[in-house]
Design a binder for these strands. Structure first.
Length: 229
DNA sequence: GCGACAG
DNA sequence: ATCTTGTCGC
């Protein structure tokens, strides 16, 4: 049901992947949201060690109540290995299949990884944002590139992440005295809004609800505890 | 050349 | 990411 723009083929070599990133980065737009979002989606993939089968899923929730409104999942194959900086080429193909199964198009999408906080400023959230043509941002659990000053221990505290002099994202504390998560805009959104949405999706855990639910979903799918038609 | 390195 | 039990701290 939900559609996307197939900007390019995913059957590429690592060198071609880097070239594609260099070519696509100019199309990324970091700007405030056009309309107030009502729904947000979380995406994630899971797999068994040493196996190529990937379990991808998307969970859509209402931003006001954090109630889950839709879930989709697919079992596919990873056409690309995990290479730092090229994560999107491994995860996006299957996520696009899950996206196609959505009945409603989410207003904004949160990814497990980075957006502009990437060596070439086009992490999975930015790359997918170009295909989906809607606001996307990344919420990573660790740093790929960039440095930041330590932040206060309270939830809500944050510190900008810098790389080669430019602000590429922010370390944001989502829970008191717990390691921060790393937020960076993907496409069609700005850092401030991405951080606000992350805090709004609080479920009492370090990981915001969209990503946390997507993670639980794909793990259940991998273990055969969930089925999608 | 050496170390770092999203998930 | 995944493989896994107990254990330290609030």
């Amino acid at each position: 049901m939900a559609h996307y723009q197939p900007l390019h083929d995913w059957n590429v070599t690592p060198a071609e992947a880097v070239a594609l990133q260099q070519q696509l980065r100019s199309q990324i737009r970091i700007e405030p949201l056009t309309k107030p979002p009502q729904t947000i989606a979380g995406c994630d993939i899971s797999f068994n060690k040493f196996e190529e089968t990937v379990y991808a899923g998307i969970v859509v929730l209402r931003l006001d109540t954090l109630e889950t409104v839709e879930e989709t999942g697919v079992i596919g194959t990873a056409p690309f290995p995990y290479i730092p900086g090229l994560l999107s080429f491994r995860e996006i193909p299957s996520l696009l299949q899950a996206w196609q199964k959505l009945k409603t198009e989410p207003d904004v999408v949160m990814f497990d990884g980075h957006g502009t906080a990437h060596p070439r400023r086009i992490g999975i959230a930015s790359h997918a944002g170009l295909f989906l043509n809607r606001p996307t941002f990344g919420c990573g659990k660790s740093v790929l590139v960039g440095k930041y000053d330590e932040l206060a221990p309270e939830r809500g505290a944050w510190s900008p992440m810098r790389h080669y002099g430019e602000v590429i994202g922010a370390a944001l504390r989502t829970k008191n005295k717990v390691n921060p998560v790393y937020i960076s805009p993907g496409n069609l959104i700005d850092l401030e809004t991405a951080m606000a949405l992350t805090l709004q999706c609080d479920g009492g855990y370090r990981i915001p609800e969209p990503t946390r639910r997507a993670h639980n979903l794909v793990n259940a799918l991998r273990k055969g505890e969930r089925v999608f038609s």
